[in-house]
């Protein structure tokens, strides 16, 4: 089994873990952490392919992903803070106003 395959497998597994976490966790903050897991999995795949193809473009994309992730976390966490202020809860099951 090559190093390349191992990295890709880890990436896929990490991504799946993130997906499952997003689906099952109730704590909104942890849901966000799981999203970070998925982004990391994608980054790992980028770097792995970058090495495999011998170009740096994949690594450039990792920077962009990190920048966007930082922005996303900032926004997401401030949304959570606002929701908590209004509802005194960070349980995503309590935030069902999309239905109305």
């Amino acid at each position: 089994m090559s190093d390349f395959a191992i990295c890709l497998a880890v990436s896929a597994a990490l991504f799946t873990l993130g997906v499952v976490g997003v689906l099952v966790k109730r704590n909104a903050i942890v849901v966000f952490m799981c999203i970070e897991l998925m982004l990391n999995a994608a980054n790992l795949a980028f770097v792995t392919f970058s090495r495999q193809h011998g170009t740096v473009d994949g690594q450039i994309f990792v920077f962009f992903v990190m920048a966007i992730a930082a922005a996303e976390v900032a926004i997401g966490l401030s949304i959570i803070v606002t929701v908590f202020r209004n509802r005194a809860s960070i349980n995503v099951d309590d935030v069902t106003m999309l239905r109305r």
Binding site: S2, A5, L8, A12, F15, R51, Q52, G54, T55, Q59
Partner: peptide, 23 residues
């Protein structure tokens, strides 16, 4: 599904590209 894709891709991929030294 993703694992199957990875497996298929990884098993057919050759060694790392020659230009690897530059990255």
């Amino acid at each position: 599904i993703v694992g199957a894709v990875v497996w298929e891709y990884a098993s057919t991929a050759g060694p790392a590209a020659a230009a690897a030294g530059d990255i």
